[in-house]
Design a protein around this nucleic acid. Structure first.
Lengths: 156, 156
DNA sequence: CCTTGAAATTTTAAGCTTGAAGTAATTCGG
DNA sequence: CCGAATTACTTCAAGCTTAAAATTTCAAGG
């Protein structure tokens, strides 16, 4: 069909708005379910889990600023979450000799062990919660979102 | 547990996990940008806007419980947000004669006017932020998310 | 050196969010 | 009727979140 409009930038605003609302509701629904299970089964929270996950990928540790940039949250936010993780013995925060303004945050052995346990359950939950999305749709959606994200990386 | 698990379908867990992470990052990125613009240009917040949007679709008003169910947030949460909207003169909260436990929340004229102004800008922003998603992908994604959502409606 | 500015982080105030406990009004079985 | 359960909502304590201000440290130019 030749629905191609004269202005290539037709861009159906209403349809995009609908997409955004559905996307937001879907992620809020999944997030709520994850939060509930993390609390009930592991007595932890999503933000804590997110920090542990970021640190797990970085055995050498991460700076506070890298952490907040990676997690898409504010600096001050990470300060509080890391404070709690330190007091739970899951991570350490060490001032660096090279630049004493910065501190390197690392998983402890206990933090690493706890993350591995939670992550295994988490992956299963996602599989369950997204179980109605076919493998094909999963790949297709994932591809669309990948390119979407990359268009925004520069802004953060 | 549920009925017998059908192992006929492979269900790639890793790929679903990747999809979830991308979906979460995409919605967080968009949400952050919306929050920033709402604050800068209209001196308001996303939760307040969400409440106004829900009420706008319901000229006769909404109960607190319908509001929290619709917005996928807790009861106590809505109480606080509506408190602020009332003090800003954007909504009213009236106890009902029929059932004195409930209260009907309605937009004021001022609230309606403010919502219309913000909503117009909001729709434009979404069009801009999702501008790199083609019309075809928009419809496809939207369709996938619609069916996804409906599989979860029962749980809320 | 020394000051000025920039960078990394923390602190602060305000608001959002939840789950649980509390209050008040309604409904319903006996 | 009446007491018990239910429903609608609010309050509460704790944690998450942000933007802005404050603090500490580093870097660079004079």
């Amino acid at each position: 069909m030749v629905s191609a409009p004269l202005s290539a930038i037709s861009k159906d605003g209403k349809e995009r708005l609908r997409l955004w609302i559905r996307m937001l509701r879907a992620s809020r629904t999944i997030e709520a379910e994850l939060r509930e299970r993390l609390r009930r089964e592991f007595d932890t929270t999503l933000p804590r889990f997110d920090v542990l996950a970021a640190l797990y990928r970085a055995p050498e540790g991460m700076l506070m600023s890298s952490l907040s940039r990676f997690l898409l949250v504010s600096n001050g936010n990470v300060t509080g979450i890391v404070d709690r993780l330190v007091s739970e013995g899951l991570v350490t925060r060490a001032r660096r000799n090279g630049d004493r303004r910065t501190s390197m945050v690392k998983l402890t052995d206990s933090g690493k062990a706890q993350f591995e346990a939670v992550a295994a359950a988490h992956e299963g939950w996602i599989g369950e919660l997204l179980g109605d999305v076919s493998d094909e749709d999963t790949r297709r959606l994932s591809g669309m979102l990948k390119s979407f994200r990359s268009n925004w990386e520069g802004r953060e």
